[in-house]
Design a protein around this nucleic acid. Structure first.
Length: 867
DNA sequence: GCGGATCAC
DNA sequence: TATGGTGATCCGC
């Protein structure tokens, strides 16, 4: 609702001290206080007087201190970052940025519709006495929204009513009437559904509409289909409380066709292209009673807004853009009662983004704004310029998110909704369908789990999740459904005799047992040897192409790893899961107990393996030789020997080769293959939203082989091939066909020198990367050559020399501040990824699967959601 | 796993 | 006098 607009307004200014923060928080706006209201100083004063000394104030101060502490930590970490680290990060981030750029999708037309001051507008509409008076909807303790009149006095959403009253004694506070708002909202949604049956309602007054398809069809529509009759003038005034407002009165008025003609888009904004207030229209000399809208996106949205106003007598603002993130920002641009479009070309997007304050972006809140401001970042341009630094200071989720924003990227698809399902039979049936889909995906990923969760969202958008854990793993549709059915039945019974009125259902499986993990852990444990599985990591984000704006699994990477290794792994193993190693490493590497932990970890794994009936063949994670039918003790000894032996130091070579293998394999396709489940959205009957962001048992990402033992790798690879991947072309790596996703180890004799040999990064966006200085991440020496191939060779050679020592020495995690006498990481300098998927439409789609990052707990869930 | 922090409405 | 309620995610513990 309009609280968003108010909040955005309220934070246009950046203030460091609490007082200003508070004033901003409660919604003061420097330029809204006009002659009729109060000036800014007065408003501030009143708010402070009402606030100071209160418990609330004390708590605000406390919270502010915490944030300041976080910022301080962050600045300390920043101070420790070396220029070399920054350069490395730059390369890494830029490569990722390039990939994002390649995946940019401008083919969708997303509209964000936002009703103006919704609750207040409804109240005013239904009670003309309130018109021209300052009103707010809410209570003495909290206001939901206020009308524009009241805003001139500094009265805003999320402000306590008693303070608002002090600001504006004549303020009328209307208690909310949600039933009424819901009814109006439904009317609006009915209109939106005409343009996109799968539109995504974010709340009663906000929705995203993907009009891409509608636009296509519309091109061939005759005028008749784009013609609307105009309701009589003065309807706003004529509508009395309780009066039916939706009757279309056929009075003979018309609109100047010029106002609505298709116009060159670049003629639109930044002014309001649609400043047509229908009240004003009524004053025009209108000769006809109908209006024909054009076929452009702009016209479609004008039509939508026209229809909304005709039907509800309420105005809406809208943003039109190639993705949700941008559309949302756009809808704020010409509010109230306006619209704004970003044309679907890169330049237009970049121009728009250029000076955009990051705070305008959904998902960047007060705290993030403040933290970034401490780094000198206020606009999106600055966000982009500091990308390397951000990647070192923030979690991968966060900096990926930032990068998306600074590139003007966001979701291009909306989560799907289905129309209400109230019949129990249909609900069971849908549930069963979901279970089948889930089972297929599980099979594809080779997963079984013990916890089945259903998620239900009713027509009022209330969400419930109910879970049940069983003693043994399940994976088939029947098994899952048996459990899910009971959960659903409980919910249906609970509401009896009323039906469950659902608009979303989801089924999730989690609690993947250790066998799955261990299998892979066994093979991947050597990944610990890889420089830098710990600490900082980079999430692999599947760029939005079809529906996948969701982050896929984090791919652990380290700033300590060779840039090229990182790149290789990033590119090749985007879909692999190495975090299992990672969490442990955070501790282990920091205490330099590398091998100790490695061994410990292995024995833990092996203990589990011991309990597993089907695991009698051990593959040494160091030499990669299979150890058949030996006792655990013997195997441990073997591993110890391997670890203590000289072979370890060479593992990186294999690493290079391993990474090499699929670098040249069309990685995008691989990624898409692996997430193909995410694309199953087109269902005739129920639109579904299937998302999988995690793949369990995928640990080989950083697996390295013993360089002196290539056949070890080959052996494993072959074994793998035979067992699981026989159908795969030798050089292609298709996750979909490899349940364990460990086929990645099957390496071909790819030319190592061709690794990472992509073109040097192109100058990008606002910043030109001039003369790259290639610094070997291992020896830290600058390499004269600018030839990436030669440089790679150097790095590989370097790695072969003393990777372990380097690994320790070079291990720097700017983010993690060592805590005194503890091995845990201190992430106070990080920020978590902020906002929810639902709330950050710019980047995420809804209900992507979650993944935990604890080594010994279920790490993945596999979700299937229909929305 | 849970709770705190953050964000959005 | 007095500063919401809920849902969602990330992250550290």
């Amino acid at each position: 609702m309009d609280s968003t607009e108010e909040k955005n307004d309220s934070t246009k200014e950046k203030n460091d001290n609490y007082k200003d923060d508070l004033l901003l928080r409660v919604g003061l706006n420097d330029n809204k206080a006009g002659m009729e209201g109060l000036d800014k100083e007065k408003i501030n004063k009143i708010i402070m007087e009402a606030t100071k000394g209160s418990r609330f104030y004390g708590n605000e101060l406390k919270k502010e201190k915490q944030v300041n502490q976080r910022i301080e930590n962050m600045m300390q970490q920043k101070a420790q970052i070396t220029s070399q680290q920054l350069r490395k990060a730059q390369l890494q981030v830029d490569r990722f940025a390039m990939e994002l750029e390649h995946s940019r999708d401008l083919s969708n037309t997303i509209v964000h519709i936002d009703m103006d001051a919704f609750y207040a507008a409804v109240e005013m509409r239904d009670n003309p006495e309130l018109k021209d008076k300052p009103i707010a909807v809410g209570s003495v303790s909290m206001l939901s929204t206020s009308n524009y009149h009241a805003r001139r006095f500094g009265v805003r959403a999320a402000m306590p009513g008693f303070i608002a009253k002090r600001l504006c004694p004549q303020l009328i506070i209307v208690p909310p009437n949600f039933d009424k708002y819901r009814a109006v909202s439904r009317e609006v949604k009915e209109i939106l559904a005409d343009y996109d049956p799968n539109f995504m309602a974010m709340s009663l007054d906000e929705a995203y509409v993907n009009i891409t398809k509608h636009l296509e069809e519309r091109q061939n529509w005759p005028e008749d289909k784009r013609k609307y009759f105009i309701k009589t003038g003065n309807s706003l005034e004529n509508d009395k409380p309780g009066k039916e407002v939706n009757k279309l009165r056929e009075q003979e008025r018309s609109i100047s066709p010029l106002l609505f003609e298709d116009s060159p888009p670049d003629l639109q904004s930044p002014g309001n292209p649609f400043q047509v207030n229908f009240e004003e229209l009524n004053n025009l000399q209108i000769l006809q009673n109908s209006i024909v809208f054009g076929t452009s996106a702009e016209e479609v949205v004008k039509e939508m807004r026209f229809r909304i106003e005709q039907k509800t007598t309420l105005t809406a603002s809208a943003g039109i853009a190639p993705n949700t993130m941008l559309a949302k920002v756009c809808s704020d641009k010409n509010k109230p009662n306006g619209q704004y479009q970003i044309l679907p070309n890169r330049q237009a997007v970049m121009d728009f983004i250029k000076d955009l304050p990051i705070r305008k972006v959904s998902g960047i809140g007060k705290v993030t704004e403040k933290m970034l401001k401490a780094l000198g970042i206020i606009t999106c341009t600055e966000l982009y310029q500091q990308r390397a630094l951000l990647s070192l200071l923030f979690s991968e989720t966060s900096w990926h998110y930032f990068l998306h924003i600074s590139l003007g990227l966001g979701s291009t698809q909306l989560a799907r909704t289905f129309s209400e399902i109230s019949k129990a039979e249909e609900q069971y049936s849908l549930c069963q369908e979901l279970c089948s889909e889930l089972a297929q995906d599980l099979q594809k990923e080779g997963l079984k789990g013990r916890t089945v969760t259903i998620k239900l969202k009713n027509v009022n958008f209330e969400v419930k999740t109910r879970a049940s854990t069983v003693s043994s793993v399940v994976s088939t549709a029947e098994e899952i459904f048996a459990i899910a059915k009971e959960l659903l039945r409980t919910e249906i019974d609970a509401d009896f005799p009323h039906p469950l009125r659902l608009r979303l259902m989801g089924v999730r499986l989690s609690g993947f047992p250790n066998e799955e993990e261990k299998k892979c852990q066994q093979r991947s444990i050597i990944g610990f040897l890889q420089p830098g599985n710990q600490a900082l990591s980079a999430t692999r984000c599947i760029p939005e192409k079809t529906d996948k704006d969701q982050f896929l699994k984090p791919l652990e990477m380290s700033h300590k790893k060779s840039f090229f290794d990182k790149k290789r792994s990033e590119r090749n193993w985007s879909y692999q899961d190495t975090f299992k190693c990672e969490t442990v490493d955070k501790q282990s590497l920091q205490t330099s107990q590398f091998f100790h932990v490695l061994k410990k970890r292995m024995s833990e794994n092996l203990e589990t393996l011991e309990n597993s009936d089907n695991c009698h063949i051990f593959t040494c994670p160091v030499c990669f030789r299979e150890q058949r039918s030996i006792s655990l003790e013997a195997f441990n000894k073997h591993v110890d020997a391997c670890l203590d032996g000289p072979s370890v130091s060479g593992n990186s070579k294999m690493s290079s080769r391993s990474h090499a293998s699929s670098t040249e394999v069309n990685e995008k396709e691989n990624v898409h293959d692996s997430v193909s489940v995410c694309e199953k959205q087109d269902y005739e009957t129920h639109q579904k939203n299937t998302e999988i962001t995690s793949v369990d048992s995928v640990d080989l990402a950083e697996t390295t082989g013993n360089p002196s033992n290539t056949e070890g790798v080959d052996a494993l690879s072959n074994k793998h091939s035979e067992e699981e991947c026989s159908s795969l072309p030798s050089k292609s790596f298709n996750m979909e066909h490899c349940p364990q996703n460990c086929c990645a180890v099957s390496l071909e004799n790819e030319d190592v020198a061709s690794l990472g040999r992509k073109e040097p990064l192109q100058p990008y966006l606002y910043e030109v990367i001039s003369d790259q200085v290639l610094v070997c991440p291992v020896c830290n020496l600058e390499q004269k050559t600018s030839d990436l191939t030669l440089f790679n060779v150097h790095v590989d050679v370097c790695l072969n020399k003393g990777i372990i020592q380097e690994l320790r020495k070079d291990k720097v995690n700017p983010v993690n501040q060592p805590k005194e006498s503890t091995t845990s990481t201190d992430n106070s300098g990080k920020i978590q990824k902020i906002g929810t998927k639902a709330n950050r439409p710019g980047l995420m789609t809804k209900y992507s699967a979650s993944k935990k990052t604890k080594p010994n707990s279920p790490k993945h869930t596999l979700d299937i959601f229909f929305k």
